[in-house]
Structures are given as structure tokens and as C-alpha cells.
């Protein structure tokens, strides 16, 4: 029984990172009706810059670099709009292109090395389970952040404006809502959250230039599993994916453990009402 509990706890701690990556995707879908596939690349850039600079300044520099990349994506988004592009798939593909370019930039500048930092040397023992302090801190931080964002979107005027901008851009603009400003702000928030995820991974397991695609797909899986329209659902989606991965690693044969979490996502999407809503792009 303790063994199962240990896998569940470990899965929840690792799933929190997926949850943090899912949040900017949900936000983007709520406001712009597209997906920013460069979120994983923002995480990589933040980790690489923080690793190079080091210390508290490194954390700030990492987040700044990630936001600068997100600002560049926002400029691409605005340029495409200026050119008359209203197809949200094109915005998503543009972000995918930016992610590839950022991964290549990291490969060119930093090479193939892994970016890893340690903040704590000794694990904590909680109920007989040895846990990395960084994992526990990650979980608490992400829980607070997701809760705050949920309140922001559901219970503040800014959140109402964001949702209105997504539901009906023309109507929102006529109601004096700065639609474009909200959209650009959402891209920047994506950079901030993606960058934060990168810093947490840097101090947890570490990452290298190959990480962006995997991080993005994990975040996307977490975002859609219980419905993409809510960061809170994204949080629980991340936890569910992390726990499914940990249980699969612990109890399934190594031959099939890798596919179990994705089968789990497929199962939820095809059998639950959340799945229908996610596929339809429904919002809460």
C-alpha cells in the first residue's frame, strides 16, 4: 500500500510541472482561441539563461529571456493579423516554428549539454517516503499560482474581458475591451509561466535542447484531458498525467510503460464529458 502511495505522490509532484505548462495553453485558448506551442521552448530558454547567469539574477534573467521570446511570438501574431490572417491554426503553426528555432538557438549557443542545478542536497522524509524538497516546493508554488489564475479569470473584470475577447472579438471591441492588448498580454503571460516551468525543471530533473517538444506535448496533454478552457482543469490534468506515468513506470512492464499515460489521455477524451468539451473547444 505504501508503495502505491509513494508512486502516487511522486506522480503528483512531477505532474505539477505538466500542470504549469498546461496553464498558459488554457489561457491562450481562452483568450485567442489558439495554442502557443512554443511554451516548452520558453522553458528551455529560461533554464539555459538561468544556468549561465546563476544565482538570483539568473532566475530573473531566465524569466526575462522567456518573456522576450514570448514577446517575439506576440509580434509574429500581430504581424500575421496585419496581413489579414485570421486562421488560428496558422498562429499555432507559427509558434511551432518559433519553438524549433529557439531549440536550434540553444543548440548553437550552448551545445548539447544538460542544464541542471541543485538547490537542496538532502531529501526530506515524509511518512516514510523520501522526497526531493524542490519537488514539494514546485507543487506548492504551482498550486498557489493556478489558484490565483483561476480566481483572476473567473472572478475579476480582467478575467471577464479575457473571456469576452475570446468568445466574440468584434463584440468585445465594440464594448471598449482592448482585445489586441489582452491577446498580447496572454502571450507574455505564457512566456512567464513557461519560463517559470523551465526554472523549476532546471532545479529538479534538468533538461537539454531536446526538451521543448516533450514539455509542450506533456503540457498540451494536461491541458486537454479535462477540458482546455480552464487552468484549474489543466492543473488536475497535469496531476492525472503525472500519476498515470508514475504508476505505469512502477507497475507496468518497461515495454508498455511509456504508452500508458497517452492511453490514459485517450481513454479520458473518448469516454468522458470532459473529452467532448475539450474537442469542441468548450469553455466553462
Amino acid at each position: 500500500m505504501l508503495a502505491i502511495a509513494e508512486y502516487v505522490v511522486r506522480g503528483a509532484l512531477s505532474g505539477a510541472i505538466y500542470a504549469l505548462l498546461a496553464v498558459p495553453m488554457s489561457l491562450m485558448f481562452v483568450t485567442v482561441r489558439t495554442i502557443d506551442f512554443a511554451v516548452g521552448a520558453y522553458a528551455l530558454i529560461a533554464a539555459a539563461v538561468c544556468w549561465s547567469v546563476g544565482g538570483a539574477l539568473g532566475l530573473a534573467a531566465g524569466l526575462g529571456a522567456a518573456m522576450a521570446c514570448a514577446a517575439f511570438m506576440a509580434i509574429i501574431f500581430l504581424a500575421l493579423k496585419r496581413l489579414g490572417c485570421e486562421d488560428h491554426i496558422i498562429y499555432a503553426l507559427a509558434s511551432f516554428g518559433l519553438a524549433t528555432a529557439l531549440a536550434s538557438l540553444v543548440l548553437w549557443w550552448w551545445g548539447t549539454q544538460a542544464f541542471v542545478r541543485d538547490a537542496f542536497s538532502d531529501p526530506w522524509s515524509v511518512g516514510g517516503i523520501r522526497l526531493a524538497p524542490q519537488g514539494v516546493i514546485n507543487f506548492a508554488l504551482i498550486l498557489l499560482l493556478v489558484g490565483a489564475l483561476h480566481l483572476l479569470i473567473q472572478h475579476t473584470s480582467l478575467g471577464r474581458m479575457m473571456r469576452a475577447a475570446a468568445a466574440n472579438q468584434t463584440g468585445a471591441a465594440l464594448a471598449s475591451i482592448p482585445v489586441q492588448g489582452i491577446q498580447v498580454g496572454t502571450y507574455l503571460a505564457g512566456g512567464l509561466l513557461g519560463g517559470l516551468a523551465g526554472l523549476l525543471v532546471l532545479y529538479s530533473a534538468g533538461l537539454d535542447f531536446t526538451a521543448p517538444l516533450g514539455l509542450t506535448l506533456s503540457g498540451f496533454g494536461a491541458a486537454i484531458i479535462f477540458g482546455i478552457g480552464s487552468p484549474l482543469r489543466g492543473f488536475f490534468g497535469g496531476l492525472a498525467m503525472g500519476i498515470a506515468q508514475a504508476l505505469a513506470a512502477g507497475y507496468a512492464s518497461a515495454m508498455v510503460a511509456g504508452m500508458v499515460p497517452f492511453l490514459f489521455v485517450l481513454l479520458v477524451l473518448t469516454t468522458s464529458r470532459f473529452g467532448e468539451e475539450a474537442l469542441a473547444g468548450g469553455r466553462p
Binding site: 508512486y7 509532484l13 519537488g135 531536446t210 516533450g214 506533456s218 511509456g258
Partner: peptide
């Protein structure tokens, strides 16, 4: 086992 992009290998 784990894929290339695994972020946590404690399990």
C-alpha cells in the same frame, strides 16, 4: 525505461 523528454525519473 523513459522517453528522451522525461522530466522526472523518481518512479
Amino acid at each position: 525505461s523513459a522517453p528522451y523528454t522525461a522530466t522526472d525519473l523518481t518512479a
